Simulated assay, not measured.
Amino acid sequence: MGRDLLDDQRLTAVGLFFEAHTGLNARFAAQFCEHHLSPVEFEVLMRLARSPGNQLRMTDLAAQTSLSTSGVTRVVDRMERDGLITRRACPTDRRSSYAVITQAGLTRLDEILPGHLELIEQWFTGQLRPEQLTVVLDALRTIRDAVNPGATAGTTPTEHVVVEV
Protein backbone atom coordinates (compact mmCIF):
# COMPACT_ATOMS: atom_id res chain seq x y z
CA MET A 1 0.00 0.00 0.00
CA GLY A 2 1.39 3.35 -0.99
CA ARG A 3 2.15 5.92 1.69
CA ASP A 4 0.32 8.60 -0.30
CA LEU A 5 -2.95 6.63 0.08
CA LEU A 6 -2.62 6.69 3.85
CA ASP A 7 -1.84 10.40 3.83
CA ASP A 8 -4.87 11.24 1.69
CA GLN A 9 -6.66 14.34 3.01
CA ARG A 10 -10.03 12.65 2.44
CA LEU A 11 -9.15 10.08 5.12
CA THR A 12 -8.14 12.89 7.45
CA ALA A 13 -11.42 14.78 6.83
CA VAL A 14 -13.68 11.82 7.51
CA GLY A 15 -11.52 10.70 10.45
CA LEU A 16 -11.73 14.12 12.08
CA PHE A 17 -15.48 14.21 11.49
CA PHE A 18 -15.96 10.82 13.19
CA GLU A 19 -13.69 11.77 16.09
CA ALA A 20 -15.64 15.01 16.65
CA HIS A 21 -18.96 13.15 16.38
CA THR A 22 -17.86 10.49 18.86
CA GLY A 23 -16.60 13.09 21.32
CA LEU A 24 -19.79 15.15 21.14
CA ASN A 25 -21.96 12.05 21.52
CA ALA A 26 -20.08 11.07 24.67
CA ARG A 27 -20.57 14.56 26.16
CA PHE A 28 -24.28 14.58 25.29
CA ALA A 29 -25.11 10.99 26.31
CA ALA A 30 -24.34 11.58 29.98
CA GLN A 31 -26.75 14.52 30.06
CA PHE A 32 -29.51 12.56 28.29
CA CYS A 33 -29.07 9.77 30.83
CA GLU A 34 -29.58 12.25 33.69
CA HIS A 35 -32.97 13.02 32.14
CA HIS A 36 -33.83 9.34 31.59
CA LEU A 37 -33.58 9.49 27.80
CA SER A 38 -31.42 7.70 25.31
CA PRO A 39 -29.75 9.75 22.56
CA VAL A 40 -32.23 8.40 19.99
CA GLU A 41 -35.20 9.30 22.21
CA PHE A 42 -33.85 12.84 22.50
CA GLU A 43 -33.45 12.95 18.72
CA VAL A 44 -37.05 11.81 18.23
CA LEU A 45 -38.36 14.46 20.64
CA MET A 46 -36.31 17.16 18.91
CA ARG A 47 -37.42 16.10 15.43
CA LEU A 48 -41.07 16.16 16.47
CA ALA A 49 -40.84 19.43 18.42
CA ARG A 50 -39.18 21.18 15.47
CA SER A 51 -41.64 19.86 12.87
CA PRO A 52 -44.88 21.53 11.74
CA GLY A 53 -47.66 20.69 14.17
CA ASN A 54 -45.10 18.91 16.42
CA GLN A 55 -45.65 15.77 14.38
CA LEU A 56 -44.19 13.63 11.62
CA ARG A 57 -45.40 10.63 9.69
CA MET A 58 -43.71 7.55 11.06
CA THR A 59 -41.98 6.99 7.70
CA ASP A 60 -40.65 10.56 7.71
CA LEU A 61 -39.42 10.14 11.28
CA ALA A 62 -37.52 7.03 10.19
CA ALA A 63 -36.03 8.93 7.24
CA GLN A 64 -34.89 11.75 9.52
CA THR A 65 -33.23 9.49 12.07
CA SER A 66 -30.74 6.67 11.96
CA LEU A 67 -33.54 4.15 12.57
CA SER A 68 -35.28 1.72 10.29
CA THR A 69 -39.07 1.84 10.12
CA SER A 70 -39.27 -1.10 12.54
CA GLY A 71 -36.73 0.61 14.80
CA VAL A 72 -38.82 3.78 14.85
CA THR A 73 -41.87 1.70 15.72
CA ARG A 74 -40.08 0.20 18.73
CA VAL A 75 -38.82 3.58 19.95
CA VAL A 76 -42.22 5.20 19.45
CA ASP A 77 -43.89 2.31 21.32
CA ARG A 78 -41.55 2.81 24.28
CA MET A 79 -41.90 6.61 24.26
CA GLU A 80 -45.66 6.33 23.95
CA ARG A 81 -45.73 4.09 27.05
CA ASP A 82 -43.71 6.80 28.83
CA GLY A 83 -46.23 9.46 27.75
CA LEU A 84 -43.68 11.49 25.76
CA ILE A 85 -45.31 11.01 22.37
CA THR A 86 -48.54 9.67 20.98
CA ARG A 87 -49.69 8.29 17.65
CA ARG A 88 -52.39 9.77 15.50
CA ALA A 89 -53.95 8.18 12.46
CA CYS A 90 -53.46 10.06 9.22
CA PRO A 91 -56.86 11.42 8.19
CA THR A 92 -56.08 11.06 4.47
CA ASP A 93 -54.22 7.73 4.39
CA ARG A 94 -55.26 4.78 6.56
CA ARG A 95 -51.85 3.14 6.07
CA SER A 96 -49.99 6.05 7.66
CA SER A 97 -49.81 7.37 11.18
CA TYR A 98 -48.16 10.32 12.83
CA ALA A 99 -45.90 10.43 15.84
CA VAL A 100 -46.83 13.52 17.86
CA ILE A 101 -44.94 14.96 20.82
CA THR A 102 -47.12 15.33 23.92
CA GLN A 103 -47.06 18.09 26.52
CA ALA A 104 -45.01 15.74 28.72
CA GLY A 105 -42.50 15.37 25.89
CA LEU A 106 -42.30 19.13 25.43
CA THR A 107 -41.84 19.54 29.19
CA ARG A 108 -38.99 17.02 29.14
CA LEU A 109 -37.32 19.00 26.35
CA ASP A 110 -37.78 22.21 28.34
CA GLU A 111 -35.90 20.53 31.20
CA ILE A 112 -33.07 19.25 28.99
CA LEU A 113 -32.50 22.04 26.48
CA PRO A 114 -30.88 24.72 28.68
CA GLY A 115 -28.11 22.34 29.77
CA HIS A 116 -27.88 20.80 26.32
CA LEU A 117 -27.41 24.20 24.70
CA GLU A 118 -24.66 24.95 27.23
CA LEU A 119 -22.89 21.73 26.21
CA ILE A 120 -23.29 22.58 22.52
CA GLU A 121 -21.85 26.03 23.14
CA GLN A 122 -18.99 24.68 25.25
CA TRP A 123 -17.93 21.81 22.99
CA PHE A 124 -19.10 22.73 19.49
CA THR A 125 -20.36 26.17 18.46
CA GLY A 126 -18.29 27.99 21.06
CA GLN A 127 -15.12 26.49 19.59
CA LEU A 128 -15.77 28.32 16.31
CA ARG A 129 -15.74 31.95 15.25
CA PRO A 130 -19.12 33.05 13.78
CA GLU A 131 -17.80 32.92 10.21
CA GLN A 132 -16.40 29.41 10.81
CA LEU A 133 -19.76 28.25 12.18
CA THR A 134 -21.51 29.55 9.05
CA VAL A 135 -19.10 27.61 6.83
CA VAL A 136 -19.48 24.44 8.95
CA LEU A 137 -23.29 24.65 8.87
CA ASP A 138 -23.31 25.13 5.09
CA ALA A 139 -20.88 22.24 4.62
CA LEU A 140 -22.82 19.91 6.91
CA ARG A 141 -26.10 20.69 5.10
CA THR A 142 -24.46 19.97 1.75
CA ILE A 143 -23.10 16.64 2.96
CA ARG A 144 -26.34 15.72 4.76
CA ASP A 145 -28.43 16.44 1.66
CA ALA A 146 -26.14 14.26 -0.47
CA VAL A 147 -25.92 11.25 1.84
CA ASN A 148 -29.36 11.46 3.47
CA PRO A 149 -31.81 13.24 1.16
CA GLY A 150 -34.73 12.08 3.33
CA ALA A 151 -33.38 13.88 6.40
CA THR A 152 -35.84 16.73 6.00
CA ALA A 153 -38.81 14.61 4.92
CA GLY A 154 -42.08 15.87 6.33
CA THR A 155 -40.71 19.20 7.51
CA THR A 156 -42.75 21.31 5.14
CA PRO A 157 -46.43 21.42 5.94
CA THR A 158 -48.27 19.52 3.20
CA GLU A 159 -51.52 19.29 5.09
CA HIS A 160 -52.81 21.08 8.13
CA VAL A 161 -53.89 18.69 10.86
CA VAL A 162 -55.07 20.02 14.19
CA VAL A 163 -53.73 17.79 16.93
CA GLU A 164 -54.65 18.08 20.57
CA VAL A 165 -52.27 16.52 23.05
Rank of each mutant, 00 (worst) to 15 (best):
S51R: 05
R3S: 11
S38Q: 10
H35V: 03
D138V: 00
V44E: 05
M58C: 09
L48E: 01
F124L: 15
E111H: 11
R57A: 13
L113C: 00
G115Y: 01
T59M: 03
C90S: 12
F17T: 13
S70D: 14
R78F: 11
L37R: 02
V135Q: 12
S68W: 08
L140T: 15
E41F: 07
P114F: 01
G71V: 05
I143H: 10
T86E: 02
G154F: 09
A13N: 09
P157I: 06
L84R: 02
L24P: 00
R3I: 10
P52F: 00
L61N: 06
S97C: 05
Q9D: 11
L133G: 11
D7Q: 14
A104R: 06
V162P: 01
R47W: 07
G105H: 03
T152K: 06
L37F: 05
V147H: 05
D77T: 02
P114D: 00
T102D: 01
P91F: 06
T155R: 14
P157F: 02
V162K: 07
I101W: 09
L24W: 03
R108L: 09
E111T: 11
A29S: 13
E80R: 02
V76H: 09
A63H: 13
T152Y: 05
V162T: 10
G150Q: 13
D110Y: 02
G71S: 06
L67Y: 12
V136A: 03
S38I: 07
S38R: 11
L109F: 00
F42A: 10
S51V: 05
N25R: 15
L45K: 08
V161G: 04
S66T: 15
T155A: 09
S97V: 02
T155L: 15
L37G: 03
R27A: 02
V161D: 05
L119H: 06
T12A: 06
V72R: 01
W123K: 00
Q55C: 08
T12V: 08
L113V: 00
A30F: 04
L119E: 02
A29N: 10
T134L: 14
G115V: 01
G115H: 05
A26N: 05
G53K: 06
A89T: 07
R27D: 01
A99V: 11
N148R: 14
Q55W: 03
L113W: 00
G15T: 14
T102P: 00
D60Y: 14
R129W: 15
S51D: 07
M58S: 15
T102M: 00
L5A: 14
G23S: 12
R74M: 05
T142W: 13
I120R: 04
A146I: 12
D4V: 07
G83V: 00
V40G: 09
D110V: 00
M79R: 07
R74E: 09
L6M: 12
T86Q: 04
T142S: 12
L37H: 03
D8A: 08
L48C: 05
Q127W: 13
N25W: 10
L24V: 06
E121D: 15
E43T: 15
M1E: 14
W123T: 02
T107Q: 13
S66Q: 14
L140E: 15
I85M: 07
Q127Y: 13
A26V: 08
T125H: 09
S38H: 12
R27Q: 07
